[in-house]
Amino acid sequence: MNVENLLVLAVALLMFPQLAQTLYSPALGDIGQAFAVGPERAGQTLSVYFLAFALGVVVWGRLCDRLGRRPVMLAGLAICACASALALNVSTFNGLLLAQAVAAFGAAVGSVVTQTVLRDRFEGAELAQVFSVMGIALAASPAIGLFSGATLVQHFGYRGMLAGLLLLALVLWGWCLWALPETRPASVSSASLGETFGLMLRDMQVWRSVGLVAAFNIALFSYYSVGQRGLSTVEFGYSGVLLALGSGMGAWLNKLLLKRGLRSEQLVLTAAGIAVLGSLLVLALQDSWLFVWPMLLVVLAFGMAIPNVLGAALVAYPDRLGTAAAVFGLLYYLVIGGGLALVAWAQELGWSLLVCGLAALWLAAPRVLRS
């Protein structure tokens, strides 16, 4: 498989988890009505998604070192498809949560295994450029997810969203069966998951990267969890298009500045500052629909920061990329899931964004000061 075709498939696989996450957002209101639960409990579906996703990251990341990238990818997508089909037939909210958790567990394969495949094929500056390209493509994911989810919910209710997720998982499974190559190196470290976990827990660089990934993701998904205030379902879906432009602009700007010689650490710090500014403006305008405009700054910061953080996170673990990616993903998805649970409980977008922005600024500053 040539590089161009691999990158196209990688884009689709990396977009899949984000699409699955954002497809749910416009359906939260309909889910609440269908199962007679309040917005706080309906909003917990996103936190459940991330917590189950974190478990999936560990399992699939470890298995792709043991069994290979291709068979693990096919297994994860198959589980996601089966769970989505099951969710279409549940009659209780707890049943929906369980089916969603299993689907999220399967969907995690699209994140951890795809990143591992890219790290198998690329390294150094080339890997940073690849993640920048991925970042530009991923910027479209929230827009596609929100718009598609809103359209499906408007015409078919939350079950339309579940059917869309099922179809997407089946299409990706067929594509991978036909085209995904096996990229696992001939020599992979025999280090255990426990050994790698202990090593990474003592690595402050890993924790700093975990905190940065979590802070920017919680800020982004806080909007999808509690940002519908004052907007109709259709307006909320269209707002995702606007925010995707901001995220894409951030990823494009990041790629441009990297080519001009700026260091990744500088770009992450700049992005954190932009996120703080955007969160302050959202906080000031959150009683008006105008808060959507400064939210553009928050998602622009996400687009700038995430490719740099991911590109540098596991450079110290080239002999165990799948296992290291499993541990790394587990840590940051647990933090994201916990953070989104707090956001759903608080129902405060502006303050949630500000806390995330300040945390990112605090975590990014030492990276620049050390260099």
Rank of each mutant, 00 (worst) to 15 (best):
40 E>K: 03
151 T>V: 10
97 L>I: 12
203 D>E: 01
305 A>F: 10
225 S>W: 03
293 W>K: 00
325 A>G: 15
109 V>M: 02
158 Y>F: 15
92 T>D: 05
230 G>V: 05
305 A>P: 03
221 F>C: 13
352 S>M: 13
29 G>F: 12
290 L>S: 13
188 V>W: 03
3 V>Y: 09
338 G>H: 04
286 Q>V: 14
195 E>F: 07
79 I>F: 07
371 S>A: 12
142 P>M: 06
128 A>S: 14
17 P>T: 07
290 L>C: 10
319 D>T: 13
144 I>D: 02
92 T>S: 15
114 T>H: 05
239 S>Q: 03
61 G>L: 04
110 G>D: 06
126 E>L: 05
202 R>D: 10
199 L>E: 08
122 F>D: 05
341 A>R: 00
127 L>E: 05
82 C>Y: 02
215 A>I: 01
73 M>Y: 04
368 V>A: 11
276 V>P: 05
283 L>V: 07
171 V>T: 11
51 L>V: 15
25 S>G: 02
37 V>N: 02
341 A>L: 11
310 L>R: 00
7 L>E: 11
276 V>Y: 03
141 S>F: 09
49 Y>P: 08
50 F>N: 09
276 V>Q: 03
53 F>I: 07
67 L>P: 12
325 A>Y: 12
161 M>H: 07
170 L>A: 13
171 V>Y: 03
324 A>I: 03
152 L>H: 10
64 C>E: 01
102 V>S: 07
36 A>G: 11
11 V>Y: 00
60 W>E: 02
266 Q>Y: 06
95 G>N: 06
172 L>Y: 08
89 N>E: 06
238 Y>H: 13
181 P>A: 07
126 E>Y: 02
247 S>M: 14
331 L>A: 11
168 L>P: 00
122 F>M: 05
251 A>Y: 09
305 A>I: 07
275 A>S: 13
71 P>K: 00
78 A>M: 12
4 E>M: 09
121 R>F: 08
157 G>Y: 08
41 R>H: 08
191 A>L: 12
138 L>Q: 10
360 A>R: 00
64 C>H: 02
3 V>D: 14
155 H>A: 08
239 S>F: 09
207 W>K: 05
356 C>Y: 09
28 L>G: 07
256 L>N: 06
317 Y>L: 04
194 G>V: 11
304 M>H: 08
233 T>R: 00
75 A>D: 00
310 L>M: 14
316 A>H: 12
266 Q>A: 10
161 M>Q: 04
110 G>E: 01
370 R>G: 00
370 R>P: 01
116 T>H: 04
2 N>T: 11
279 S>G: 06
169 A>M: 05
173 W>V: 09
163 A>N: 06
148 S>E: 02
95 G>L: 10
203 D>F: 06
120 D>P: 03
368 V>F: 13
245 L>R: 03
84 S>C: 10
137 A>G: 11
1 M>S: 14
248 G>F: 10
255 K>R: 11
17 P>D: 06
83 A>E: 08
358 L>Q: 02
